[in-house]
Design a protein around this nucleic acid. Structure first.
Lengths: 265, 265
DNA sequence: ACAAAAGTGTTAGGGCTACACCCATGC
DNA sequence: GCATGGGTGTAGCCCTAACACTTTTGT
């Protein structure tokens, strides 16, 4: 721990950390929410702070940055420490470093990542752990530091990226009906999307593949189950982090990538 | 959030720095380029390294990060140290932090910014300073570290953002003809754009304003001079994230903008 | 038969592209 | 007049929104 008075602290090189905004598609908001729509919503896990400042408040999962780890690896480690789910997508979001955000603590630079994990259709429990709890993104508690702004920014980015099909592919399961996919889009966009047109657009994109299976949800007509075609994920500059074909970590050393080994599980 | 094990050497926190990719619209590439097109190109300044590693090679302008400065302020300082031009746009690009990129030096995290400065139509000289020189982006020398990939990434992002009109507004001068604006778009996109359609699209966007003036370039029909309407610059997600504290806010509000006051010189 | 969700057809409009065409100016 | 760049018109294409419609299932 670095000690010293305030002016000494200000001259210190800033501490560097990684935080992660983790998103998963889940059921519609809780029962105590009088909103009766059936549309699914996005959920995210938060951790309760166990020290000052902001002791007891909820915050984004995060951790320190080890000099011998890539940024992605550090982000992955932070993710793993809060949830057992494996990320389908991991991308650098933004780096925050204003002096004001440390609120009297040490000056801090946070490299924020953005992760998508599998959701409800795999009946994975959103297990609330020791100091971890899941919240619907539209009903978050008060957050520590400037984490609220960070979350808002992450959601903006997600909506901006909805057009990239591989992003959505990470939120849904491997196999899904068009209605389910449609629900995901609506959950992200937070607006109604014509199902008929959506269906055509998706099928016309040539990215989907009929699995041959059918899925009957209620007592209604069964829906055909699709999957994304292999190799669909185009390496946009963004999914760099995952695709490994891109420059972020890639060009430098695609070989020793612990992440990809872990995520293929 | 920071929990490094200080005793272990490899776990020491990395050094944090800021680098800047500075772009300006300039004349077509040099005479020794047998490419005879008249289309303007983008230029950027590089600094020659005066210490190891990569001593003598060209590198992106950069500097350390002071704990009492915002990231933008640090980027701005790095920019100022290499060129007297003032940025019309400054945006965070990406943060690089892989252990391998230091090439034997200290572990280094670089927060890279992206700056656009005014160009040729203001007959600003691309003054080559002591250890500073301007290069066309498509004819860069060998760069130190992984800076080449950083530049490539910056160019990708620029092309991806060409649709945001305020980005282009920062590259052209305050006043311009549609042909000049068209040239900028072609320089960025590196492909031909139908001038007739471009004109209509621009005018239809409602972002341009007729200044009433005309400009005659050769002996031809004079072209009407436009400017971007005030308040056109929509807060992209990026400078939103920034706008809370720092001078980047001035980027958004052209009114009390110290920068624009300086650039009109 | 009926309800509910899956899935199809159809039409109108907007935007974009390609390219033909007119306008103003200096020589 | 004629060359040159400024500026306009227009027809076709494709994509999309809107919404009516048919199909398949369980009850």
């Amino acid at each position: 721990m670095i000690m010293g008075n305030v002016s000494e602290r200000r001259r210190q090189p800033p501490q560097v950390g990684v935080s992660v905004v983790i998103l998963a598609l889940g059921p519609a908001a809780r029962a105590d929410d009088r909103n009766d729509q059936t549309r699914g919503t996005l959920w995210m896990p938060l951790v309760r702070r166990v020290r000052q400042p902001f002791l007891g408040q909820w915050a984004l999962p995060g951790g320190g940055l080890r000099a011998d780890h890539s940024l992605e690896q550090s982000a992955y480690a932070a993710l793993e420490s809060t949830t057992s789910l494996h990320p389908r997508y991991l991308e650098q979001l933004y780096t925050f470093g204003d002096p004001s955000r440390s609120h009297g603590g040490l000056p801090m630079v946070s490299i924020v990542y953005w992760a998508l994990v599998g959701g409800m259709d795999e009946n994975v429990e959103f297990a609330d752990g020791d100091n971890v709890s899941w919240f619907p993104v539209d009903h978050l508690p008060e957050l520590a530091f400037d984490h609220r702004e960070i979350v808002d920014y992450a959601m903006e980015r997600l909506r901006g990226k909805i057009e990239y099909p591989d992003i959505v592919a990470r939120l849904v399961g491997d196999r899904f009906t068009l209605s389910q996919l449609h629900d995901v889009y609506e959950a992200i966009a937070e607006e109604d999307i014509d199902l008929a047109n959506f269906r055509r657009k998706m099928l016309a994109s040539g990215l989907l593949e009929d699995t041959g299976d059918k899925l009957r949800v209620g007592r209604n007509r069964p829906a055909t189950v699709y999957r994304y075609k292999q190799g669909t994920a185009q390496p946009t500059p963004w999914n760099v982090a995952e695709s490994r074909t891109d420059f972020a970590a890639s060009d430098i050393d695609p070989q020793d990538d612990a992440l990809s080994a872990l995520t293929t599980a």
